[in-house]
């Protein structure tokens, strides 16, 4: 693994009214790694992604992508640079068939510049590319699933569709907001090779997860958040041994405190 920093978050803070959602969170994302972000509910994980991708303005702090300051840029500019995200609550275009959902990212300036496909010819090149991407992400090419309306797809496929939307942009970084949540154990088992393949293709991933066991199978490093502050970071095994992490997740280990 190279240790070149692709994304750097420097002392980000965000307050919603009186609630301090993030305070002075900093971390570096190395090129090609999978970084897990974990923490109990309300610890600021999704806010962190929103701040990085420009969906929420930070109160203070900076975000650098390849040494370039991207703080405060609008979401579409950040996506144009190659920093893409999925949404925790899936946001497909419900009125369109699954494969047509990908036309929209393929139509973006970034996809047209870096995609390597010309797109939009008379034979519907973009449609073909859509089906290709969906197959890559686990939709069965010859089945009717890619042609179904997004509103009729089950959660597992919608999560994949979220990832597919990022892939259509030829991303450098994907920030995944709980892609495993709501999936069955077998569905996750089929997602994990997918994540590993994305990493092998050179995409850097940040994964917010509650499913720690599955996350630790793929993550190289883990950052732990609690009440908007970074508790610790490190390799998964070391992080889970940390007393503060155990306390954040399980409450105090020592029950005698309460007795």
């Amino acid at each position: 693994m190279t240790s070149e920093t692709i994304l750097e978050v420097k002392e980000i803070s965000k307050a919603f009214g009186g609630i301090q959602a993030l305070s002075n969170v900093s971390f570096r994302l190395h090129q090609g790694e999978i970084l897990g972000i974990i923490g109990p509910n309300g610890s600021g994980k999704t806010t962190l992604i929103n701040c990085i991708t420009g969906f929420v303005h930070t109160s203070s702090g900076k975000v650098f992508f390849k040494q370039k300051d991207i703080t405060g840029q609008p979401p579409h500019k950040i996506a144009h640079l190659g920093v893409t995200r999925t949404f925790q609550v899936m946001r497909p275009y419900y009125s369109l068939p699954a494969y047509k959902n990908l036309i929209i990212p393929l139509f973006s300036p970034r996809a047209r510049k870096y995609g390597g496909w010309r797109g939009g010819g008379k034979l519907g090149d973009r449609n073909t590319v859509c089906i290709d991407i969906l197959e890559e992400i686990g939709f069965e090419r010859d089945s009717f699933v890619p042609y179904k309306l997004a509103s009729a797809l089950p959660t597992g496929y919608l999560k994949r569709l979220e990832l597919a939307r990022c892939l259509a942009l030829k991303p450098e970084v994907i920030l995944c907001d709980e892609v495993f949540s709501g999936l069955s154990a077998s569905e996750i088992a089929s997602m994990i090779p997918l994540i590993e393949r994305l990493q092998m293709e050179g995409i850097t991933l940040v994964m917010i997860e509650h499913r720690l066991k599955e996350l630790f199978r793929v993550a190289d490093r883990v950052v732990v958040l609690n009440f908007g502050q970074k508790l610790t970071e490190g390799i998964p095994e070391a992080v889970m041994e940390d007393e503060r992490v155990k306390e954040a997740y399980l409450g105090s280990e020592d029950l005698s405190d309460y007795v």
Partner: peptide, 10 residues
């Protein structure tokens, strides 16, 4: 879904 369109770099 305008948020998803923004996230698609448009």
């Amino acid at each position: 879904n305008d948020q998803a369109v923004k996230a698609s770099g448009i």
